[in-house]
């Protein structure tokens, strides 16, 4: 699974710790998601997407697909 988390975070100028605090996880968790070492569960994925005001498909991409926003 690919993620646009790092890009979206950079756009908002949020640190990993800021995002972690907003969604109630550790900074290590956000880092693991960004580096592809950990795939979040649906609950966390939705929380992250909503924190950015996006749909889940705009933040996370299943490996053989394309990110929704890039398709438009």
């Amino acid at each position: 699974m690919k993620t646009r988390l790092r890009v979206l975070r950079a756009e908002k100028e949020w640190s990993q710790a800021d995002l972690a605090s907003a969604v109630g996880v550790t900074r290590q968790c956000i880092n693991a998601i960004e580096t592809g070492k950990y795939e979040p569960g649906l609950d966390l994925a939705f929380k992250i997407a909503r924190t950015f005001g996006k749909n889940i498909e705009e933040v996370f991409l299943y490996e053989d697909g394309q990110i929704a926003s890039e398709r438009r």
Binding site: K12, W14, A17, D18, A20, S21, V25, T26, R27, Q28
Partner: peptide, 12 residues
């Protein structure tokens, strides 16, 4: 975005 000081973060 500001980091909240209270309550303590999940890490702490």
């Amino acid at each position: 975005m500001t980091t909240q000081s209270n309550p303590p973060s999940p890490e702490i």
